[in-house]
Amino acid sequence: MLLIDNQTVAKILDIKGCMEALEIGYRDLIKERAVYRGRYDLFVPNDDPKLMYRWGTMEGASRSFETFAIRMKSDMLEWPEGKTVEKYCIEPGTFCGVVMVFSTRNGEPLAIINDGIIQHMRVGGCAGLGAKYLSREDSSVVGIYGAGGMARTYLLAFNQVRKIREVKVYSPTKQNRESYANEMAERLGIKVLPVERPEEAARGCDIVATCTDSIQVVVNDPDWIEPGMHLTCVKANEWNPDIVKSADLVIKMGRPTLNLDVGQMRIGGEAAVVAGNAEEIKRIANPKVDIFSAEFPLLTDIMSGKLKGRTDAEQVTFFVNSGTQGLQFASTAGYVVREAKRRGLGQQIPTDWFLQDIRD
């Protein structure tokens, strides 16, 4: 069995390999050779009223990779001033998330993987698939809101499927947007401009992506949207719902947990339960906007030819990058494990540690 840390994942998983793995997983889904369970979160109030514990899981399987994977994360959450969500494990700056991978051939535990790199890459990779099937083929100018890990992988993915020549990035923190611009310009060899006003990151762009930790609407003004744009998101609350409704074509990555059981609710667009009373639940800064819960046609419908994608250069398309997360981890982690074995990477640990002679 392998223990694979983020440094090893970074050696294996580039955006090209990530997107290829994701597309294999979704082709499996189309052919009824893959399965997933929607993301599910469990919240526990803390003695400190500013904090909330969250346990999150998502799982899936791909027959092409012969893997089942479950991603698990353990977070302490807080919402400074009700504007963003901040998280950590034990102390600020450290995080806990792992992907456990099992063989669907014989049930063998194959690997435990730190989820940091895979998480950013699989979300960005899906945004890239959205751009591949929905954006204009001549798209060359990208607008990015946010300057963190997701903003980086989104741009890598867009650059993989379209010939990007210019990027405009907006973050409310001047240092963050300038650092992002310098790093990504050097990394991709293209012009990346930090902009001072949010509307500048949208106007004149072919692809516009929100990649933020905001719990408020980020792009609110419909006047910023121009014919032919392709729009996408990271979170359920980043776009004014009127912009989404007015798009000519809205496509979703996959279905979320649709039917909530007794006691469940949606928090940030995802199914959740809370081990708390009504007053404690009010501590959670649940965004008022949630585009993830709406029903839209799926990207697999376009990939399979069931539906047409963009049919006009003037159409505004919107890609809701949510759903099927468990399959994404099965595909990308399956790819990482396969490559780690082939290249002799990762730390070997005894498989016997995870086996027992007591039938459960």
Rank of each mutant, 00 (worst) to 15 (best):
S103E: 07
G125C: 03
R177Y: 01
Y40I: 08
G344S: 05
M52N: 12
G149I: 00
P256Y: 02
I281R: 15
G204Y: 01
N259M: 05
G97I: 01
I117Y: 03
Q315L: 04
S74P: 03
L22I: 02
A272M: 06
Y40A: 14
S304L: 02
T57Q: 09
D242F: 00
P198L: 05
K132H: 08
G38F: 02
S62V: 01
V217I: 10
L156Y: 14
S135Y: 00
L134T: 13
I349P: 10
E23H: 01
W239G: 14
A69W: 01
I251V: 15
R187M: 10
G17N: 14
A151N: 08
Q7G: 11
V219L: 06
C233I: 07
C211K: 04
I30R: 10
G305M: 03
R197Q: 13
D14S: 07
D312W: 02
N114M: 03
T257A: 08
S139V: 03
N321L: 06
A111P: 11
S214A: 15
E183Q: 12
Q119K: 06
K31C: 05
I15D: 11
R359P: 06
K87R: 13
K16R: 14
C211T: 15
T210L: 03
A271N: 09
G263H: 03
D242P: 05
A151Y: 01
P287I: 00
L42Y: 10
K83P: 02
A236R: 02
M150I: 15
S246V: 04
K306D: 04
N182K: 15
G344I: 01
E178C: 13
G130N: 07
N286R: 05
S103T: 05
E178P: 06
I24C: 13
L193C: 12
R266E: 09
D47R: 08
Q315Y: 00
A181T: 09
T104Q: 03
A275G: 12
Q347W: 05
V142W: 02
E314I: 02
A285C: 13
Y133F: 11
L307S: 13
G148P: 04
T311D: 09
P287Y: 00
D221S: 11
N159G: 15
G149T: 06
D206V: 09
D47A: 12
A247M: 02
S140N: 13
E137V: 08
V244G: 15
R197W: 00
V289K: 02
